[in-house]
Amino acid sequence: MQIHDNPALKAEARNLNFFYGEAKALKNINMPIYDKKVTALIGPSGCGKSTYLRSFNRMHDLYPGNRYEGEIRFFPDNTNLLSSEVDPIEVRMRVGMVFQKPNPFPKSIYENVAYGLRVRGENNKRVLDDKVEHALKGAAIWDEAKDRLSELASNLSGGQQQRLCIARALATDPELLLFDEPTSALDPIATAAIEELVHELKKRVTILIVTHNMQQAARVSDYTAYMYLGEMIEFGKTDEIFIKPKDKRTEDYITGRMG
């Protein structure tokens, strides 16, 4: 990684290995995540990009038999997110996540956004109102939602639901926001709205996004990592990866000869 004019580090994977039971899904990954930038993870399906993403909020801890090796350092406090001494819940309170399919809770729009705050013990109505409005504005859904805050979230359209899920994640001011193929279940117009939003959001928060769509990676990200069979093949500035990839395998994938 010979990029020297780099911004500050937000996180860094160091010799990261991951196992589903016996199966090794991630192989010795080293990669920086830069502060207030968008980093895209691309690669053919099954390459481990989602597995890698879900390591950042310890999602794998929910299922028995999963095991991490190595470190993900989180800055500025230089915590190892994967350490067994670090509480996964504490990690998840600092790292937000948006999923492949919109998964609003069976609650009102308002309560969906307020959820994370309530988890943190905040029940003051005024504070909640304020934060909910701020988060909905941040996720560019305030205008559509402000008159129907008490409606069930499931009444929203798919694209609106996904923006609501982004608002839900934003409401608690996460330091890092993970996106796991956030537009794969959406139509092109809703996809464009989310992409624009991601672009907006990087002013406030560091973003790591998995995408199956190379154009999307090229459009939204500052940095791109290409993964293949659990390995990190190449990482660099998005322009460089797409214009002059160094690795033959990256080039094959980007030019459509593979994947």
Binding site: N57, M59, L62, I89, E90, R92, M93, G96, M97, F99, Q100, K101, N103, P104, F105, P106, Y115, G116, V119, R120, C165, R168, A169, T172
Partner: peptide, 14 residues
Amino acid sequence: PMSLREGAYAMGST
């Protein structure tokens, strides 16, 4: 569905 639970856990719920 598991995705709902994951959404909740990702917000830091117990």
